[in-house]
Amino acid sequence: MFSKGLKKEHYGYLFIAPFFIIFIVFGLYPIVYSFYLSLSSWDGFGSPEIIGFANYKRLIGDYMFYKALFNTLFIWVISVIPQLTVSLILAVILHEKFIKGKSLFRAIFFFPNIVTAASLGLLVGLIFSWQSGSFNELLINLGIISDPVNWPDKPYFMRLLISSILFWQYFGYSMIIYIAGLQGISRDLLEAAEIDGASKVQVFFKITLPLLKPIMIFQVITSIIGGMQIFDQPYTLTNGSGNPDNATLTSVMYLYKTAFTRYQYGYGSAIAFGLFIIIVIFSIISFVVMNRKTKGAQG
């Protein structure tokens, strides 16, 4: 029979086959098709017209692409730095034994992560809206301001607001992952160090932190990949507009707007590939940098 003729190791192909079939159809085909489109000009009606690398040429000189990229990076950096530090501090605190209600705190901190990002964008949009947002009304009630402030019209404020949403949504998640990493570190090691007279801070920097490096690399890289694709929150927060003055237009929003509201599918696809290349570059850079640091710390 067939199975007898098949060498044991070749069963591996059968195991991975379903995944790859689905992947080729729903993952690879769309990407290849998008690449084909990126070399063409197409508004969705009729058939695409091949125009070579003109879209990529346009991309390289496109100030809006760089602006969107800047917005995305800005929003990401402002959110990820506190996210990764606060969550580390929390993880260490909540890993301590004297804290009461640990699991309650963990649950509360993790909680924002499970809430639909799209709903969050809407909610925050409502809270900070100009003339009827509860934030302005709170400030007026407290006597801090007398007229409502037009928050949605302030570019940096809106970027910070998105960063805050992201921070708020992800610090609990990062914390849980750090805690998991901490649980992997032997308690004996830490206690031995403390008995040797090392202070808590010393233990943290000399032992805990280096041991957490792999987890940190994991967190940084996954957050780069996710962070460069921010879409839901700014999209629903600004009702798809990227206002004010495109300050909250992220790269993916720009891609979406170009392809799906302006119907420039070719150029939209080129933006997608541009973004992909940038994500790969950032991931590699951060991987290399963090790895080198690890070696330095150990050596």
């Binding site: 995944f19 992947f23 993952g27 392809a259 590939f273």
Partner: peptide, 19 residues
């Protein structure tokens, strides 16, 4: 397979609609 993790979901959006 790992490399595909880096591909933004939105990259293939137009193609996904097509398929």
């Amino acid at each position: 397979v790992l490399a595909t993790m880096m591909v933004p979901q939105q990259l293939g959006l137009v193609g996904t609609f097509r398929i």
